[in-house]
């Protein structure tokens, strides 16, 4: 199963979610500002890379975890992806797509836009990290929900 966290640009909410999923950020406490900023992929993706599938690592179920940016019309881009694969007769049942953007607050979103869209990295990057930390446990809760569902799907797949 491919676990995919998607958002607007694959730079903040999906990156932080994947990091929690893979244990690169803690689940039991709020990480420090430095811990968030030290993630090699946090606030890094450029606009022209939106739509790229970024591999992040394997989780405890040995499933590959990815992040993906789907731009301003995420529902349309997602529909285009899934219907395209369906028309080709490819099995989309092994794709587990999770929308990370609704699980971060406006500070993180504003910081992300300042940094990625307007190039104001100096102000945007710390603001987005602050936003992630401010409502951190909402993000942890989201990822834990993803893991529960992932585990359920794995059990179902193996007839458990």
């Amino acid at each position: 199963m491919h676990v995919i966290y998607y958002c607007y640009g694959s730079a903040h909410s999906s990156v932080a979610s994947a990091a929690i999923h893979l244990g690169r950020l803690p689940s039991d406490r709020v990480p420090t500002q430095e811990e968030v900023l030290r993630l090699t992929d946090f606030d890094q993706v450029e606009s022209w890379q939106i739509g790229t599938l970024f591999f992040k690592g394997h989780d405890e179920f040995d499933n590959p975890v990815y992040t993906l940016g789907l731009g301003p019309e995420q529902a349309v881009a997602k529909q285009a992806l899934l219907s395209f694969l369906d028309r080709l007769g490819l099995d989309t049942g092994n794709l587990f797509l999770n929308h990370a953007l609704p699980h971060i607050n406006r500070y993180a979103k504003a910081g992300g836009a300042l940094s990625r869209r307007y190039g104001l990295v100096k102000w945007g990057r710390p603001l987005s990290a602050y936003g992630i930390r401010r409502d951190y446990f909402k993000l942890v809760e989201f990822v834990q929900g993803v893991k529960v569902e992932e585990s359920r799907r794995m059990m179902h797949k193996h007839g458990g």
Partner: peptide, 12 residues
């Protein structure tokens, strides 16, 4: 594809 054209092709 609306405004998602370039992104969707890259994703495909």
């Amino acid at each position: 594809l609306g405004r998602s054209a370039t992104i969707a092709v890259r994703t495909w």
